[in-house]
Amino acid sequence: MTKRSHISLSVNGDEYETLCEPDQSLVDVLRNELELTGTKEGCSTGDCGACSIRLDGDLVCSCLVLAVEAEGKEIETIEGMAPKSDELHPLQRHFLEINGLQCGICTPGILIAAKALLEKNSDPTETEIRFWLAGNLCRCTGYDKIIRSVQAAAEEMRKG
Protein backbone atom coordinates (compact mmCIF):
# COMPACT_ATOMS: atom_id res chain seq x y z
CA MET A 1 0.00 0.00 0.00
CA THR A 2 1.47 3.30 -1.06
CA LYS A 3 1.84 5.84 1.68
CA ARG A 4 -0.58 8.69 1.19
CA SER A 5 0.58 12.26 1.73
CA HIS A 6 -1.30 14.88 3.67
CA ILE A 7 -1.62 18.20 1.83
CA SER A 8 -3.05 21.60 2.72
CA LEU A 9 -4.02 23.90 -0.10
CA SER A 10 -6.13 26.93 -0.79
CA VAL A 11 -8.76 26.65 -3.52
CA ASN A 12 -10.61 29.84 -4.45
CA GLY A 13 -9.66 31.27 -1.07
CA ASP A 14 -10.96 28.31 0.96
CA GLU A 15 -8.50 26.17 2.89
CA TYR A 16 -8.64 22.42 2.28
CA GLU A 17 -6.78 19.46 3.75
CA THR A 18 -6.76 16.07 2.13
CA LEU A 19 -4.77 12.91 1.53
CA CYS A 20 -3.35 11.99 -1.85
CA GLU A 21 -1.24 9.34 -3.53
CA PRO A 22 2.33 10.42 -4.42
CA ASP A 23 1.61 10.17 -8.15
CA GLN A 24 -1.98 11.40 -8.11
CA SER A 25 -2.72 14.33 -10.40
CA LEU A 26 -4.12 17.55 -9.03
CA VAL A 27 -7.21 17.34 -11.25
CA ASP A 28 -7.99 13.95 -9.75
CA VAL A 29 -7.72 15.31 -6.21
CA LEU A 30 -9.78 18.42 -7.02
CA ARG A 31 -12.56 16.34 -8.51
CA ASN A 32 -12.53 13.15 -6.45
CA GLU A 33 -11.20 14.16 -3.03
CA LEU A 34 -12.36 17.79 -2.76
CA GLU A 35 -15.46 17.16 -4.93
CA LEU A 36 -14.85 20.31 -6.95
CA THR A 37 -16.05 18.81 -10.21
CA GLY A 38 -16.21 22.05 -12.22
CA THR A 39 -12.70 21.36 -13.53
CA LYS A 40 -12.96 18.70 -16.23
CA GLU A 41 -10.48 16.01 -17.21
CA GLY A 42 -10.28 15.41 -20.95
CA CYS A 43 -7.10 13.94 -22.38
CA SER A 44 -4.96 13.65 -19.20
CA THR A 45 -1.91 14.51 -21.32
CA GLY A 46 -1.93 18.32 -21.39
CA ASP A 47 -3.30 18.58 -24.93
CA CYS A 48 -6.95 19.57 -24.45
CA GLY A 49 -6.81 22.18 -21.68
CA ALA A 50 -10.15 21.11 -20.12
CA CYS A 51 -8.43 20.83 -16.73
CA SER A 52 -6.94 24.36 -16.87
CA ILE A 53 -6.59 26.03 -13.47
CA ARG A 54 -4.41 28.74 -11.90
CA LEU A 55 -1.62 27.53 -9.63
CA ASP A 56 -0.23 30.47 -7.65
CA GLY A 57 -1.53 32.60 -10.53
CA ASP A 58 0.04 30.54 -13.33
CA LEU A 59 -2.25 29.05 -15.95
CA VAL A 60 -1.54 25.30 -15.99
CA CYS A 61 -3.11 21.97 -16.86
CA SER A 62 -4.03 20.34 -13.57
CA CYS A 63 -3.63 16.88 -15.13
CA LEU A 64 0.10 17.62 -15.43
CA VAL A 65 0.51 18.77 -11.82
CA LEU A 66 1.02 16.36 -8.95
CA ALA A 67 -1.43 16.95 -6.13
CA VAL A 68 1.46 16.82 -3.64
CA GLU A 69 2.98 19.84 -5.39
CA ALA A 70 -0.08 21.87 -4.42
CA GLU A 71 0.94 21.84 -0.74
CA GLY A 72 0.76 25.44 0.47
CA LYS A 73 -0.28 26.75 -2.95
CA GLU A 74 -3.18 28.92 -4.00
CA ILE A 75 -5.42 27.40 -6.61
CA GLU A 76 -8.12 29.04 -8.65
CA THR A 77 -10.78 26.94 -10.36
CA ILE A 78 -13.99 27.68 -12.20
CA GLU A 79 -15.94 27.41 -8.93
CA GLY A 80 -14.28 30.64 -7.80
CA MET A 81 -14.92 32.65 -10.96
CA ALA A 82 -18.37 34.14 -10.31
CA PRO A 83 -18.05 37.10 -7.91
CA LYS A 84 -21.31 36.23 -6.10
CA SER A 85 -23.72 33.32 -6.02
CA ASP A 86 -26.20 35.28 -8.12
CA GLU A 87 -23.74 37.18 -10.32
CA LEU A 88 -21.60 35.73 -13.09
CA HIS A 89 -18.20 36.96 -14.27
CA PRO A 90 -18.48 38.94 -17.54
CA LEU A 91 -16.75 36.11 -19.40
CA GLN A 92 -19.30 33.59 -18.10
CA ARG A 93 -22.17 35.89 -18.99
CA HIS A 94 -20.98 36.56 -22.53
CA PHE A 95 -20.33 32.85 -23.14
CA LEU A 96 -23.99 32.28 -22.23
CA GLU A 97 -25.32 35.21 -24.27
CA ILE A 98 -23.29 34.48 -27.40
CA ASN A 99 -23.54 30.68 -27.09
CA GLY A 100 -19.79 30.25 -26.67
CA LEU A 101 -20.43 26.67 -25.65
CA GLN A 102 -22.42 23.63 -26.63
CA CYS A 103 -21.67 20.52 -24.57
CA GLY A 104 -19.75 22.55 -22.01
CA ILE A 105 -16.92 20.15 -21.19
CA CYS A 106 -14.21 22.52 -22.45
CA THR A 107 -15.88 25.64 -21.06
CA PRO A 108 -14.46 25.79 -17.49
CA GLY A 109 -10.92 25.46 -18.87
CA ILE A 110 -11.53 28.04 -21.57
CA LEU A 111 -13.01 30.51 -19.09
CA ILE A 112 -10.05 30.11 -16.73
CA ALA A 113 -7.60 30.53 -19.64
CA ALA A 114 -9.47 33.52 -21.07
CA LYS A 115 -9.54 35.23 -17.67
CA ALA A 116 -5.78 34.81 -17.40
CA LEU A 117 -5.38 36.36 -20.85
CA LEU A 118 -7.55 39.39 -20.07
CA GLU A 119 -5.63 40.06 -16.85
CA LYS A 120 -2.44 40.22 -18.93
CA ASN A 121 -3.89 41.93 -21.99
CA SER A 122 -7.19 43.77 -21.64
CA ASP A 123 -7.54 44.35 -25.39
CA PRO A 124 -6.29 41.26 -27.23
CA THR A 125 -6.62 40.91 -31.00
CA GLU A 126 -8.47 37.94 -32.45
CA THR A 127 -5.10 36.38 -33.33
CA GLU A 128 -3.83 36.86 -29.79
CA ILE A 129 -6.97 35.23 -28.38
CA ARG A 130 -6.66 32.30 -30.79
CA PHE A 131 -2.97 31.72 -29.95
CA TRP A 132 -3.60 32.04 -26.21
CA LEU A 133 -6.46 29.52 -26.38
CA ALA A 134 -4.58 27.11 -28.68
CA GLY A 135 -4.19 24.80 -25.69
CA ASN A 136 -7.96 24.56 -25.16
CA LEU A 137 -9.73 22.21 -27.54
CA CYS A 138 -13.44 22.48 -28.28
CA ARG A 139 -15.03 19.86 -30.52
CA CYS A 140 -18.47 21.51 -30.69
CA THR A 141 -18.36 25.18 -31.49
CA GLY A 142 -15.76 25.63 -34.21
CA TYR A 143 -14.27 28.31 -31.91
CA ASP A 144 -15.87 31.34 -33.59
CA LYS A 145 -18.42 31.96 -30.83
CA ILE A 146 -15.78 31.34 -28.17
CA ILE A 147 -13.58 34.06 -29.65
CA ARG A 148 -16.51 36.44 -29.95
CA SER A 149 -17.55 35.76 -26.35
CA VAL A 150 -14.03 36.61 -25.14
CA GLN A 151 -13.98 39.78 -27.25
CA ALA A 152 -17.36 40.90 -25.91
CA ALA A 153 -16.30 40.25 -22.32
CA ALA A 154 -13.01 42.08 -22.88
CA GLU A 155 -14.85 45.08 -24.25
CA GLU A 156 -17.24 45.21 -21.30
CA MET A 157 -14.41 44.78 -18.80
CA ARG A 158 -12.40 47.60 -20.42
CA LYS A 159 -15.34 49.93 -19.97
CA GLY A 160 -15.34 48.88 -16.30
Binding site: L59, V60, L64
Partner: peptide
Amino acid sequence: IGSIQVKGR
Protein backbone atom coordinates in the same frame (compact mmCIF):
# COMPACT_ATOMS: atom_id res chain seq x y z
CA ILE B 1 6.75 24.50 -26.76
CA GLY B 2 3.12 23.40 -26.29
CA SER B 3 0.33 25.66 -25.08
CA ILE B 4 0.37 28.55 -22.62
CA GLN B 5 -0.67 26.00 -19.97
CA VAL B 6 2.25 23.71 -20.84
CA LYS B 7 4.72 26.62 -20.91
CA GLY B 8 3.44 27.64 -17.49
CA ARG B 9 5.34 24.61 -16.19
